[in-house]
Design a protein around this nucleic acid. Structure first.
Lengths: 339, 339
DNA sequence: CTGTTAGCGCTTTCAG
DNA sequence: CTGAAAGCGCTAACAG
C-alpha cells in the first residue's frame, strides 16, 4: 500500500498541490470550505505528511539527538523519560545515541550530527580525557546543545545541573555528624564536572569539620569494574580501615556492598555508606542504601524545554544559562544508624 | 557556519554535482583520480551528506523506531542497549517513543510512523485491552515490525520472545519443591502474551504437582500502584495466607517486599517470593530477590538484527518467525531457604 | 482565494 | 569517464 501524498490528495480533490498544502497548514489564504474538503479527505485517507520532504524544504527536522553514555542506569533512563515527555508534547522526535563512555564514539556521533539530521542535541558527556572539539564544532555549526548532569567545563552553552558540590558537602557532613572520622571518597578519574564538583564538596566538608584530608582517603576508580573491586577491597583491608564510604557513583557503592559481604564487614556498624544514586529500590537493600538522589526526570524535562525554547528563537541562539535542580539526601540506616 | 553540500564541493572542484555524488559513493564510473580529489576535499571540509535529502530521494531513512512502554525499567533499558549497539554497527538511527502503557498513545505513534519517517519498527506492546489495528496498518503499509518480549497474539510478524511459559513453570516448580502449597500469582489484566503465557506456566506446574488452583491464588493487578498495594496487602492478611508469591512483574514483587515489612511478614520464612525481573541489584536486597531473569540485551540485539535483515530484502518482506531466547531462574534465599 | 513555479540536497537515469 | 536533467514530497514566494 503506497502512502498517500499531497499530489494524490490534490488529484482526488481536483485542486492544486499548494492549495492542499496550505489548507492542511490552516493558512488564512484558503477558504473554509476548501479547508474542510481537504481535511476530510486527508483524514479519510489517513494522510501523513512526509517528514523528510518538509525537513529538507524547511531546513529543520523537529528532531533532537540525545547523546548519553548509557541507558541502563537509573539516572539516564529517568532523564530520557523526562526528555521524551516534553518532546512528545512539543511534537519533536528523539534520536538516541549511546557512547558507552567512549569519547571517541561521542566525537564520531557529534560529527555525524553536523549533517542536519537534528535541530539540537541533549548531551550528558562521557568520561575520558579526550578533547571536546566535537562539541565546539556543533555549536559553531549553529546546532544548539544543552548539557544535563555531566558537562565539560569551559563550553559556553546551556546546562541543566544538579548541585553536586553542595549535596556532596551535605552527604559528607551527614557522615561526619554520625561520627565518621575516616571517610573514603570513591571517584572517577576525569575532569567532568560531576567528578570535580563532588570531590570539592567532600573536601569542603572535611575542612569545615577540621578533618585533614589524607591521600589514602581518595580512591580514583575507572571503568574497569574488576579493578575497582580490587581497589575497594584493598582499601577496606588496610590497617586504618575507613569508617565510611562516600561513592560519587552508584556502581562503586554496590561493589562496596559486595566487598563488605565478602570480607564480613558489617554495614553500617563497621562501615557507613552513602552514594549518588537514583535506584528506586535502594530502600529495599540490606541495609537500605543511603543516597543522594538526583532529580533525573526533572532534569530531562528542563533540558528538553531549554533546548526547544532555543530552537524556536531565530538564529537558534543558545544562551549559556545554567539551571540548577537540587538533589535530595536520603539518609537511611546504612549511614545514620550508629550501632 | 553553513553546512557544506554537494553543490559546494562540486563548485570548489570544478566538476559536476553528480560526479561528486558518484565519487563519494565509490561508483565504478568515476576515475580513481577524481575520486581521490573528491574524497580529499570532502574530508577536509568535513562534508556530511544531508540525510533527509537522500532519504527523500531513496525512500528509505536508515532509521527505525523503538516503541516501548517505558524506559525506566531494567528490561527495556537493557533491550535498548542491545538495539542501539546493532543499529550503530549497521549505521541505522534509532528513534525512541514511549507509550507509558497507554494503547491510545501507542496507536497514535504508529499512525504517525506511516509517514515514512522510519524503515521499520521494534515494539514491545503496551498493556490495555484496545484493538491492535494500528499494528496491522503498519504492516499493510509495508513497514516491518519486530516485536520483542511483549506482543499481541495473532499478528503475523517476527517476534523475539523469551520462554515465558516454561520459565514460569520452572519458577513455580521451584517454589513447590521448596514446600510451598499456597502460591499466590500476581498478574496483570491484559491479553498480552507475557501475562497469559506466564499464567499458563504457573497453572501447569500446579497441575503437575496436584495442587488444585483456587480462585484466591490469582490476583489481577493493573497500572495503579496504590491499588495493587492494597490488593497485595489484603491477600497477605487473609486467613489462609499464601506461603509464596510469584509475581509476573517486577514492580509488584517490590511492592510485596514493602507490604511484608509493613505487616511484619518475614521473607522467606513466612513468605517466599520470586518474580520476573532484570534488576542488577536483586542480590543485594534483603533478602536477595529470586528472579527469572530475561535475556534483555540479547533480545534487543536479536530484534534489531531480524529487522535489519528484513529491511535489506526487496519488498521489505517480513517473515513471522519466532525466536525464543530462554530466561534464567536465579533462585536465592528469598525463595529457596526453608528456614 | 487559488495556482504556478522554483527550489531544499541528493540520486539516478540517460546522453554525451 | 563526466555532466545535464528529472524528480523524491513538500513549502513559500509570487502571480493571477
Amino acid at each position: 500500500m503506497e502512502p498517500i501524498n499531497l499530489k494524490g490528495l490534490a488529484a482526488q480533490l481536483g485542486i492544486s498541490i499548494s492549495s492542499v498544502s496550505k489548507a492542511l497548514r490552516d493558512s488564512h489564504e484558503i477558504s473554509p470550505e476548501t479547508k474542510d474538503r481537504v481535511r476530510a479527505l486527508a483524514r479519510e485517507l489517513n494522510y501523513q505528511p512526509n517528514p523528510y520532504a518538509s525537513s529538507l524544504r524547511k531546513q529543520k527536522s523537529k528532531t533532537i539527538a540525545v547523546v548519553i553514555p548509557e541507558v541502563a542506569n537509573h539516572f539516564f533512563s529517568l532523564a530520557i523519560n523526562g526528555i521524551e515527555s516534553i518532546a512528545q508534547e512539543r511534537d519533536y522526535h528523539v534520536l538516541i545515541y549511546l557512547t558507552h563512555e567512549d569519547t571517541a564514539k561521542e566525537a564520531a556521533i557529534c560529527k555525524h550530527l553536523l549533517s542536519g539530521r537534528v535541530d539540537g542535541v541533549l548531551m550528558s558527556a562521557s568520561m575520558g580525557a579526550s578533547s571536546h572539539d566535537h562539541i565546539q564544532e556543533l555549536l559553531l555549526h549553529n546546532i544548539p546543545i544543552v548539557f544535563f548532569d555531566r558537562n565539560w567545563p569551559g563550553i559556553e552553552t546551556a546546562k541543566i545541573m544538579t548541585n553536586d558540590r553542595e549535596s556532596a558537602f551535605g552527604a559528607t557532613e551527614h557522615l561526619i555528624q554520625n561520627g565518621c572520622k575516616n571517610i573514603l571518597f570513591l571517584s572517577l578519574t576525569s575532569s567532568l564536572n560531576i567528578n570535580t564538583d563532588r570531590l570539592e564538596g567532600f573536601k569542603e566538608a572535611l575542612i569545615k569539620y577540621n578533618q585533614p584530608l589524607r591521600r589514602s582517603q581518595l580512591i580514583m576508580c575507572d571503568l574497569d569494574d574488576e579493578m575497582n573491586q580490587k581497589r575497594i577491597r584493598r582499601a577496606l583491608m588496610r590497617n586504618n580501615r575507613p569508617d565510611a564510604i562516600f561513592s560519587s557513583i552508584e556502581k562503586m557503592a554496590l561493589t562496596t556492598y559486595e566487598v563488605c559481604r565478602e570480607l564480613g564487614i558489617r554495614i553500617p556498624a563497621d562501615l557507613k555508606i552513602i552514594c549518588f544514586s537514583n535506584m528506586s529500590s535502594a530502600h529495599l537493600m540490606h541495609p537500605p542504601l543511603s543516597t543522594v538522589r538526583q532529580p533525573a526526570f526533572e532534569m530531562g524535562k528542563q533540558a528538553a524545554s531549554v533546548l526547544f525554547r532555543s530552537l524556536e528563537k531565530k538564529g537558534r541562539y543558545i544562551s549559556n544559562e545554567e539551571i540548577v535542580v537540587p538533589s535530595t539526601l536520603i539518609a537511611r540506616e546504612s549511614s545514620s544508624l550508629s550501632k
